[in-house]
Amino acid sequence: MIVRKSGDETLALDERDNFKAFKLQFEQLEAGSQPAIAGIRYIADDHAYIDQQTVIDLAGDDPDGTWRQGFDAMVTAAAKYGWIDAESQSIKAHIEWK
């Protein structure tokens, strides 16, 4: 799953059903840049926390709840490895610039 921002465009969710990987990707932005984006909090030069609701909103419709089940399982697994912020419940993501 890739939370992607390209230039001046709004956020998008790519590889929406890939629950084995999670990252924040900036395209057409200078390496190291950290644009102010609602739902994203930078914690290091190459990591950020992304609000779970932001990801859910980007995923769009899920009429049968299948996507949400996969997402919740991913969050549960990530928590075991310390990739969920205990206070905000945001998901830690590696940042990649392309």
Rank of each mutant, 00 (worst) to 15 (best):
I56F: 03
W83K: 10
K98M: 13
A38Y: 04
D85Q: 14
D72G: 00
E30Q: 15
W67S: 05
F71T: 03
E30F: 15
D46G: 09
K98Y: 07
Y81C: 04
D61T: 09
L24I: 07
A79M: 11
E96Y: 04
F22D: 10
I95N: 06
A36F: 12
Q25G: 12
Q25D: 09
K80Q: 14
D8V: 13
A59Q: 09
G32T: 06
A36V: 14
T66I: 04
I56H: 07
P63E: 15
I50N: 01
E9L: 10
T10P: 12
Q89D: 11
D14V: 03
F26R: 03
Y42W: 00
I40G: 00
A59K: 00
W67R: 12
A77K: 14
W97L: 09
R41S: 14
T66N: 05
A93P: 07
G7R: 09
W67V: 08
E87I: 14
Q34V: 12
Y81M: 05
Q69H: 07
H47N: 13
G70A: 10
A86V: 15
L29Y: 02
Q25N: 13
V75C: 03
I56G: 06
D64L: 08
H47A: 14
I2V: 02
W97S: 12
K98R: 12
Q28Y: 11
Q53D: 10
V75K: 02
L29A: 01
L11E: 00
A38I: 01
W67N: 12
F71V: 00
Q89F: 03
W67A: 08
D46V: 05
D57A: 08
R16K: 10
Q89I: 02
Q53S: 05
R68N: 04
F22S: 15
H94Q: 12
I84T: 10
F19L: 07
I2S: 02
T76S: 11
A73L: 13
H47Y: 14
F26S: 03
K92C: 13
S6A: 08
I91K: 06
T10W: 02
D85H: 13
L13K: 03
D85V: 03
D14C: 03
E9T: 09
I40F: 04
D14T: 03
L58M: 01
I84L: 12
K23A: 00
H94R: 06
Q89S: 13
G7C: 05
G70Q: 11
Q89G: 04
Q52N: 13
G39R: 03
L11H: 10
A31Q: 15
K92F: 07
E15Y: 00
I84A: 09
E87A: 15
K5D: 00
I40L: 02
I95E: 09
